[in-house]
Design a protein around this nucleic acid. Structure first.
Length: 879
DNA sequence: TTGTTCGCCTAA
DNA sequence: TGAGTTAGGCGAACAA
């Protein structure tokens, strides 16, 4: 047989239990897309599953073993499912250095049962690493590899099912290329952007009987050298079974890597799954695979029965759907996490991203009367369905969702699937475990660490003084927590525990945190985490340098690529603290998290104190930032002056002083592993006196309005409030308090008279819930008192009116009567004129405005009450 | 009217 | 695949 080789980006990995010459073997099955656009399945031979065992308890001398160790090992060897016990290796553990025996297991699925049995007498390590991941760790590869091997299947030479089975596959896969190889056929290459194929779909369903009325799918292909993607729209009508069959056929023929759609996780995929169950008897695999056999695996009953990564998509957890060889990426979820939109409907998000697209403004089909709509104007419904199958692709493209995930995958060295749908700790596991194994550090099981009791103390937040503050320099610690971890060598493997057999030598320098916890110094024992963080830091520098180079060369795609990569590195670095401060991570200890934050608090409080002692007033500080008064002339203007006006000179002088002071102060307080940077210069800073709520006029390094915490930033606020407050802050920072108060009063008055459109009053909040057995949504699991939650009330009304509602999504509503308790609300229905809102509670909204505006205006002598009434009772100075 | 609790969302 | 963390503001409901 011929050989095949090529560069591929790995989409996902799974394993198959196999037999070779009557002995068990396990095949790693890699699924990827090649650089030139072929879908590839590779069977990798020669890896064996297993786990590691060592003797429980503290160990002072790894060579001192129980007398009956031979007998014990022998009895392990004789256990069912165990192939072999390898020669022991000495590894570091938190109870001393110990001998570790690698127990080779027949098949990965036997591991859970063996774990249960072995843990009675042994300590287990490396015992809960999914076998597919093992391959990435052992070979030290990431998602971008060069792979070569024996060709089993191609367009020219279609594969033979039996021959493929002999290589560990389950039949002929619906892909371009299939090969068989071993560890020597795989090599790391530089990351590249894979020409993924995306498949986006949408269903329209009956309200009356839940059946699928019609469907649409859009395919997107983007070759690496093309600017614009090629899209192809398909529509499906007819009886339900044939719609499902044709959809499935299209998936298998078009062979996409990524399946998307809007809210498919919670609606479209569950619906197809339910309808499949309606049409198929439990054992009727033949029919099931025709209706929903979307996996990139052979269509046979064996693949049908797999619970994960098989032929039929399954919900592996509440988190994501899995199927063989493809990745489900819900455009809703991606849009939510990157955009944090105020509302989450497809219409809202699309209009947000594509404000110039007039088509999006067309009135929707009335989803609450879908059966009627379908009966009377099917072509309109189908058009609407087709559009909704295309939009998710545009959304993903606009927010660069696949490129971001690909960059994360490259940095974390995991398959695309893990970057797209995995957890933060899985990303870290990938880096930490491979380093641990390389350094002979035993890998503990998740959950093996002592539980963290209560919360650890976090960052320090300085009280903020209410009012206006002129000329503020904002100083920030550069990557504060990572720097502390590097600087103090903070790691699971460097923590000094009095009970540990290995102790630092007398007089050895150790890092002592303010909590008293101690860590070895880097020269004696470098931590895994500090090493990884340092490596990530230098990776980021490389990408930033490459960005500059690409920019200079006019290489737009290179610039974008390195920007994605440096951003992904940043994300990874910032994930370390959280994972290591969590209560469950395998390499954690409660002292790690609390030491990091304790060092951080000590650093920042120390600097605040020294600044104050020097007479530099610190106005505010949060965790890693310090807002300090710049010693400018007292008559320095705080609003940018007109060109050529008399204030201009003073303004420039103040700017100059701020730069000098900011840079000098940052430098003066910087230490080797605690670098302070002059990040931002403000000509004016305002807060009403609450922590985490402030605004500033940024004048360096660029001109901007910075707002933190206030209603303008909140997605559960409403537009009149958001817009009004934004305008108020602009005026306040210009020093025009009068105008700000006037604006506040006018806005409140307008709302009071109900002269504002209901659309500007929509409040949107997350509404949780769970599907009950009867198909109804149960709110009581998530809410102590569901009736008391406005968003639940709105959700219930939507359900009652046959309008779509998905637990876990934000829901928009308008308050119609706040006099009653709980207050009455109406869901916002964007398919209807004016959202279907006839009347709103103007007094309620006026009061909300007054409260929010009042907090700001209080600083200038107007209370919320006075704003609401429109005049002031006691006036010291009346405007 | 006031204090407590629940819940959402944000800053870092 | 159950799982990054804590600090903090504030609105609403509800009990007292």
């Amino acid at each position: 047989m011929a050989d095949w080789s090529g560069d591929i980006a790995v989409l996902s990995v799974r394993w198959n239990a196999h037999q070779e010459n009557n002995s068990p073997s396990t095949i790693i099955e890699i699924c990827g897309r090649s650089r030139n656009g072929l879908s590839v399945i590779a069977f990798v031979n020669g890896f064996r599953p297993g786990i590691e065992i060592s003797i429980p308890g503290i160990c002072k001398d790894p060579n001192q073993l129980p007398d009956d160790i031979e007998r014990q090992i022998e009895s392990v060897k004789n256990m069912d499912g165990i192939n072999a016990v390898h020669e022991p290796i000495i590894k570091w553990t938190d109870l001393g250095e110990k001998k570790h025996w690698w127990i080779e297991v027949e098949q990965p699925f036997m591991v859970p049962r063996l774990r249960e049995k072995l843990k009675e007498r042994w300590t287990l390590s490396s015992a809960d690493i999914p076998f597919g991941n093992r391959f990435f760790l052992d070979q030290d590869i990431g998602p971008h590899i060069h792979i070569s091997g024996e060709l089993l299947h191609s367009a020219e030479q279609p594969g033979d099912a039996d021959a493929i089975r002999k290589k560990g596959g389950t039949g002929v896969y619906p892909v371009d290329i299939m090969i068989s190889t071993d560890r020597n056929g795989v090599a790391t290459i530089k990351p590249f952007q894979a020409p993924w194929i995306l498949f986006s779909f949408d269903l329209e369903t009956s309200i009356e009987n839940d059946s699928i009325l019609c469907a649409a799918a859009t395919l997107e292909t983007l070759a690496f050298d093309m600017e614009e993607p090629v899209q192809e729209v398909h529509t499906f009508v007819g009886d339900e079974e044939s719609i499902m069959r044709e959809l499935t056929q299209l998936v298998r023929d078009s062979d996409p890597d990524i399946i998307t759609g809007y809210n498919i996780d919670n609606f479209d995929l569950p619906r197809i799954n339910d309808r499949m169950d309606v049409h198929c008897r439990a054992k009727d695999f033949e029919k099931k695979m025709e209706l929903f056999g979307w996996g990139r695996v052979p269509a046979n009953s064996e693949e049908c029965k797999r619970n994960r990564q098989g032929l039929l998509p399954k919900r592996a957890s509440t988190r994501a759907w899995t199927l063989g060889g493809r990745v489900v990426m819900d455009a809703w979820w991606q849009a939510r996490s990157t955009l944090r939109p105020r509302r989450e409907t497809l219409k809202f998000v699309s209009e947000l991203l594509f404000p110039d697209d007039e088509e999006l403004r067309k009135m929707d089909v009335d989803a609450s009367k879908m059966d009627e709509e379908w009966a009377t104007r099917p072509e309109v419904v189908l058009e609407y369905c087709a559009r909704d199958s295309t939009l998710p692709l545009q959304i993903l493209r606009k927010i660069q969702a696949t490129r971001r995930k690909e960059a994360i995958a490259a940095v974390a060295k995991v398959p695309f699937e893990t970057a797209a749908n995995g957890t933060t700790s899985q990303l870290l596991d990938s880096l930490v475990i491979r380093l641990a194994e390389a350094r002979d550090v035993a890998v503990p099981m998740t959950g093996s660490a002592a539980k963290k009791e209560g919360q650890i103390t976090g960052g320090y937040v300085h009280d903020v003084e209410a009012g206006m503050h002129p000329w503020i320099a904002v100083l920030d610690f550069k990557s504060m927590y990572p720097s502390i971890m590097i600087g103090n060598n903070v790691c699971h493997t460097t923590r000094i525990d009095p009970s540990h057999p290995i102790q630092p030598a007398e007089g050895e320098l150790v890092h002592i945190s303010p909590t008293g916890a101690q860590f070895r110094n880097k020269e004696e024992r470098e931590g895994l985490v500090p090493f990884l963080l340092q490596d990530l830091m230098s990776q980021r520098d490389l990408h930033k340098t490459a960005m500059k180079q690409a920019d200079a060369d006019g290489d737009a795609s290179g610039l974008a690529f390195h920007d994605q990569m440096q951003y992904a590195v940043k994300i990874m670095m910032n994930s370390f603290y959280g994972v290591f401060a969590s209560g469950f991570y395998r390499f954690t200890h409660r002292d790690l998290g609390s030491s990091i934050t304790a060092w951080a608090r000590r650093n920042i409080k120390g600097i605040i104190q020294r600044l104050e002692e020097e007479g530099h007033h610190v106005v505010y500080s949060d965790t890693d930032s310090i807002f300090v008064r710049v010693p400018v002339a007292s008559d320095s203007p705080t609003a940018p002056p007109e060109k050529g006006s008399e204030g201009e000179e003073k303004w420039l002088a103040a700017m100059e002083e701020m730069l000098r002071f900011g840079q000098e102060t940052a430098e003066r307080f910087s230490e080797e592993s605690a670098v302070l940077e002059f990040e931002t210069g403000l000509s004016a800073f305002f807060s009403h006196g609450a922590k985490k709520r402030y605004v500033g006029r940024v004048v360096w390094p660029n001109d901007d309005l910075m707002i933190k915490g206030y209603e303008t930033q909140r997605t559960d606020s409403f537009e009149v409030l958001t817009k009004g407050m934004q305008r108020m802050f602009e005026l306040v920072l210009d020093g025009d308090e009068k105008a700000a108060i006037k604006l506040a009063r006018e806005q409140i008055e307008k709302v009071k008279k109900a002269e504002v459109a209901a659309e500007e009053l929509v409040i949107s909040k997350l509404c949780k819930g769970e599907f009950g057995k009867d198909g109804k949504i149960d709110f009581s699991k998530h809410y102590a008192n569901p009736k008391g939650q406005a968003q639940v009330q709105a959700a219930r009304k939507r359900i009652e009116r046959n309008l779509p509602f998905t637990p876990g999504m934000k829901i928009g509503f308008v308050v119609t009567n706040a006099r009653n308790r709980p207050m009455e609300v109406e869901p916002w229905n964007e398919a209807e004129e004016n959202g279907g809102i006839e009347k709103y509670d103007a007094i309620f909204y006026a009061e909300r405005l007054a409260t929010a505006f009042g907090r700001v205006c209080e600083a200038f002598g107007w209370s919320a009450d006075e704003l609401l009434k429109g005049n002031r009772q006691s006036s010291l100075f009346s405007f």
